[in-house]
Design a protein around this nucleic acid. Structure first.
Length: 666
RNA sequence: GCUGCUGUAGCUCAGCUGGUAGAGCGCGUCCUUGGUAAGGACGAGGUCACGGGUUCAAGUCCCGUCAGCAGCUCCA
């Protein structure tokens, strides 16, 4: 006798070991019809799952209305896609085919290189399979049988996976659908007919088990929904997100460009982009002064010995541009980070505990040789400027300094309306011995960091094993408009560079003895390139007034008002606004449209009526025509919005193309 | 770096199975002098990424290089 507890609080008794399908049928024929899967004691299972013969279990039947059902269906869609590919191309080796946040993919090894031109045939074959509505049948077998079946099918990846990845499982499961049989944990939908709408989206390379030294596979991406309407709206969402892409907007709005002649991964800041950067730098600099930092400048190159001492060379040699060798045989490298230079400033004279904490800040431009396939717009580049600073402090000061760094990062992000981020705390892997510094020192620091986050109300995930070898860290991660995550700000403790084997940093303590300082690396924005790239997407190019490259544009109703228009423009400029004037002999509507498309926050329309009364007709980018007002009133309105750094509208949220939520369902 | 795809006017793109280049927007000139998202006419603008090859003939086919895109991998 088994007692089945249902979500509505009721329960049903069954005499024997029933399947979930039978439970659904007992609740109602309609439910049995629309059931996709079920959640049994918190685990998503297929309808063919048999409940235990006695005791009590919680069962929730999933229909297409439940979000868990979508993932189950998509996984089945991945099988259907694999089946279609196997029908079309001989000799397909199956690898993994999990669901992702926005759909699913399946990795294959096959001779024929898949391309978009193959998608229609694959989709057509999938349509046939869905229309046939054959059931997904679960088959359980022993490890040995499973291995033999896969070997007989010639599926080498599956054989390897059974032998290695699944070594601990005594029994394994297959799912059969028609001629298609695949090693798979499941669960699956009852039959293919529930796949309402699907699309093969893209193909790309991927390595078996993510290992670049292993076979390269072809990864076919797709997505599926229960209804064509949902699929359409998803595809629309992707299109919308693509329009927000900073690479598209950067070109459209003349913010930055990249020239192959200068070099890929090297950003050329156009005047408008440079304006935004400049404003951000000024904003940050003011904040640094307020928080007790001192600014420094250091050169773009340094002798290779500096990096030998820091330990970065030759360990990171592949990630740096090759060294520059002078005719006299001196070897320099383009600096890949600022810390060694800042360390030398610390070492430029003996330090006392009274000097600490010493906070040295610099907008330092660094160069790293990223692999060509890595480069992407402004978010992944080979030359970038960090809003960098290095703090030298005593062990006791670490918590307070760390707190200050996080507060500043929080403050800066808040000022920009960037609220959609998460913080990852990279902690040590207790099982590893690769770390510099004592275990107690780490424990104390990690504890302090976690406490600081808690008191600041920062939602942070502790990730053991994610720390760098030299110290724990806190990374601020934001998601871009197409769902990719980018690390922006970072705060990292460093026990390595100050150590005896590196730069051997010291200070004289109150006890007149030498002590070793702790170093903190921190960059609230991270890199200006990446940060502004993310900001462009965050605002969809429509920067808040205080950051807008062009804050206002004077537009004349006709050429008759040009003189008054230029006068207004002059007064705005005098008042410190970034302003332009459009005096072309175009119609008003046309000039407004241009201004709107260029995302100018305010347009000041002036015509004969305004010239007469000394007014301007203000048009707001967001709210439209605000009507005529005295010029002084308009200046006050804009000035107030700048001073308060008001953020009126953002476009966060992604199109669900990310990999978060990817599950390895085989 | 690897796999796949892409590279045509300033921008977005068309150009069929090879027969010496097109559109829209933008730009220039002129007409129009208009009150909140596209007035009209005319015109200029292209080593079809670069280098080889096949061919009577290459934007189109093949190879290489460079760059971009998607993904994998890595990030002090």
């Amino acid at each position: 006798m088994v007692s089945v507890n249902l979500p509505d609080g009721s329960s049903k008794e069954f005499a024997s070991a029933v399947s979930v399908r039978e439970v659904a049928a007992a609740i109602g024929p309609r439910l049995a019809q629309s059931a996709i899967a079920a959640v049994v004691d918190g685990r998503v299972v297929g309808l063919d799952t048999r409940l235990p013969g006695d005791g009590s279990v919680a069962v929730r039947i999933l229909t297409r209305k439940d979000s868990e059902a979508l993932a189950v269906m998509r996984h089945s869609a991945a099988h259907v896609m694999a089946r279609a590919v196997m029908r079309l191309f001989p000799g397909v080796q199956l690898a993994f085919g999990p669901t992702t946040e926005g759909g699913f993919y399946y990795d294959f090894a096959l001779e024929h290189p898949l391309s978009e031109s193959d998608f229609p045939a694959i989709e057509e074959e999938m349509r046939k399979i869905v229309a046939a509505d054959e059931p997904f049948e679960r088959i359980e077998s022993s490890r040995e049988d499973a291995r033999r079946v896969c070997a007989d099918l010639g599926q080498q990846f599956k054989v390897e996976h059974i032998e290695q990845g699944l070594a601990e499982y005594p029994t394994l499961s297959f799912y059969r659908q028609g001629e298609f049989l695949d090693l798979c944990r499941g669960p699956h939908i009852p039959s293919a007919g529930s796949i309402g709408a699907f699309k093969v989206l893209s193909v790309a390379g991927a390595y078996w088990k993510g290992d670049a030294s292993r076979e390269q596979l072809q990864r076919l991406y797709g997505t599926a929904f229960f209804t064509p309407q949902e699929l359409d709206s998803y595809l629309m969402k992707i299109e919308e997100a693509k329009k927000r892409d900073h690479r598209v907007l950067g070109k459209q709005l003349d913010l930055f460009t990249i020239s192959p002649t200068v070099g890929s991964g090297l950003i050329l800041w156009l005047p408008k982009g440079a304006t935004v950067r400049n404003l951000l730098e000024t904003f940050t600099r003011e904040e640094l002064v307020r928080r007790g930092y001192q600014t420094v400048y250091t050169p773009n190159i340094g002798k290779v010995d500096l990096y030998k001492t820091s330990g970065h060379y030759p360990y990171y040699a592949k990630d740096m541009f090759p060294s520059l060798v002078t005719t006299e045989g001196e070897e320099f490298i383009l600096k890949p980070m600022n810390c060694p230079h800042h360390v030398m400033i610390y070492k430029s004279r003996p330090r006392s505990y009274r000097d600490l904490p010493l906070r040295l800040a610099e907008f330092g431009t660094v160069y790293r040789y990223e692999k060509s396939g890595q480069l992407s717009g402004m978010t992944r580049v080979r030359g970038f400027t960090q809003d960098d600073a290095h703090l030298f402090c005593t062990d006791e000061q670490v918590a307070g300094e760390f707190r200050g760094c996080l507060e500043m990062t929080q403050f800066v992000l808040k000022c920009l309306g960037l609220e959609n981020y998460r913080v990852r705390l990279g902690f040590r892997d207790p099982a590893s011995d690769k770390y510099v510094g004592s275990a107690e020192q780490w424990e104390r620091a990690q504890q302090a960091i976690a406490d600081v986050c808690r008191t600041l109300g920062i939602e942070a995930s502790e990730e053991p094993g994610e720390a760098a070898f030299y110290g724990p860290k806190a990374d601020f991660v934001v998601t871009d408009c197409i769902g990719r995550e980018w690390q922006l700000g970072t705060v990292q403790l460093d026990y390595n560079l100050p150590s005896e084997s590196r730069f051997n940093l010291e200070y004289v303590g109150a006890d007149n003895r030498m002590h070793r300082p702790v170093m903190i690396h921190r960059a609230p924005l991270g890199s200006l390139e990446r940060f502004i790239g993310v900001l462009i997407e965050h605002f969809a190019g429509a920067f808040p007034l205080w950051l807008a490259p062009e804050q206002a544009r004077v537009i004349t109703v006709s050429e008759k008002s040009e003189e008054y228009g230029r006068q207004v423009e002059g007064q705005l400029r005098e008042a410190g606004f970034r302003v332009s004037g459009d005096y072309r002999p175009e119609k008003l509507g046309s000039k407004i449209r241009d201004g709107q498309l260029e995302l100018i926050p305010y347009m000041l329309v002036v015509g004969p009526r305004d010239a007469e009364s000394g007014t301007v007709s203000v048009r707001d980018r967001i709210d439209g025509d605000l009507g005529a007002m005295p010029l002084a009133a308009a200046l006050e309105r804009l000035g107030e919005e700048v001073r308060s750094r008001r953020v009126r509208r953002t476009f966060s949220g992604d199109a669900g193309l990310g990999e978060r939520g990817a599950k390895n369902e085989y």
